[in-house]
Simulated scan of single mutants.
Amino acid sequence: MTDHATPPPPAPEAVAVPEDPAVPVVPEDPAVLAEQEARRTRRRKAAVRWSCAALVFALAGTGTALAVTAPERTDLPGLATASDGRYTFAPLTLPPLPAGKEAPDGKGRSPHHADLRYLLLPAPKEAGGSLTPPVFPAPTLGPTPSGSPTASPTPSASPTPSASATSLAPVSEFGQWAPCDAIAEEQQDAAKMRSLLLEDACRAATVREWTASDGTRTQIRLLRFGSFRESWDAFTALRGKANPKAAPDTRTTPHSDWDTVDGTIRTVMESTTAGPKGDPTARFAYVSASDILAVITMTNPSGVPTTPFRQVVTLQSDLLA
């Protein structure tokens, strides 16, 4: 007997289930459809409202950011940085040079040819100074050199600005000529200072003074000599032997952390008398810049803060460098 494989049984055919004629197809309720459509409409409107609200908030935030960042921080109430005592000066501007003359080489040896009055640091805003950069008159060679420390420039030798330049920037706004030995009257030993000026032949001198709103009085003198050697000799003698009336007892103070100004050398001193807050009542700086010697004096019975003094000395050095 032969064994045969039994084939699998055939799959049952799908039997269609006839629809029950007794169960009718109920159409959608119009009220339900209307409610669904109204719900979708409300959702779209809510999405539009939220999108508009987000856009408004974004625009408002951008506008606020621009309003805060566009002005200077100091112009915003509550955000102004506390003042550290620095003065507000107009942008520094170097005066023009006479035709054929060159600017100092930055090494502290070549002479200055610019009008000495225009190399003085201008008064700050806190002392009634203008914040507009100066407009300089036509450049000239300046006063005729003189070996006498008492000689002041004659009118014929002084720079004569044109009428239009004078109307824009009177010379008095820059500085004034002064006798060389005017500085001697500020020393306890005036005769010694006059002798020094005679020995080194001071050629011309200028002065600028102001009193700031904090009560600090500033005086800057520029003395021009015939050469770097003469200016350096006066500088070393003054910083080592000067005895100003404003501070009978002084001491040299370190300033190694100050900004370095190429072409200048300075010595900083202060009085041993201090004000209520501990600041010295007088500070001095002697700056050598080629043929020019700058003497900066700041006094205040309440004390001269370090920050404005350092600022004035540095900016005046920049103008001479």
Rank of each mutant, 00 (worst) to 15 (best):
R251P: 08
T64S: 10
V17T: 07
V25E: 15
T253Q: 07
K45A: 15
T273G: 04
A114N: 03
R283W: 08
P145S: 07
P145N: 06
S231W: 05
A289F: 05
I292V: 14
G128Y: 11
A54C: 15
H4C: 13
E199H: 15
P30I: 02
G240E: 15
E28R: 15
T93V: 15
D214K: 09
V15L: 11
V48N: 11
G108M: 07
L315N: 08
G61D: 09
E126P: 02
P18E: 14
P137M: 14
L120C: 02
E72L: 13
Q187Y: 02
P10K: 01
S256P: 00
T154K: 06
L320C: 06
A212K: 03
P30E: 01
H4M: 14
L94E: 13
T250C: 04
P98T: 03
P276L: 02
F136S: 03
L222C: 00
T74H: 10
T140Y: 04
E37N: 02
L168V: 12
K245W: 02
G303Q: 07
Q219C: 10
P161C: 09
T260C: 05
A65V: 12
A58W: 06
V15Q: 11
E185H: 08
S164R: 13
A11P: 11
F284K: 01
T144R: 10
K107W: 12
P161L: 09
S162M: 01
T260G: 09
L55E: 06
D181L: 04
A67S: 14
S162N: 04
S288W: 04
E35D: 12
K192L: 05
P134G: 14
P145A: 10
L97G: 02
T218Y: 13
T2M: 11
K101Y: 08
V312M: 07
S195L: 10
T64M: 13
W258A: 11
A99F: 07
P276M: 04
L55R: 08
I183M: 00
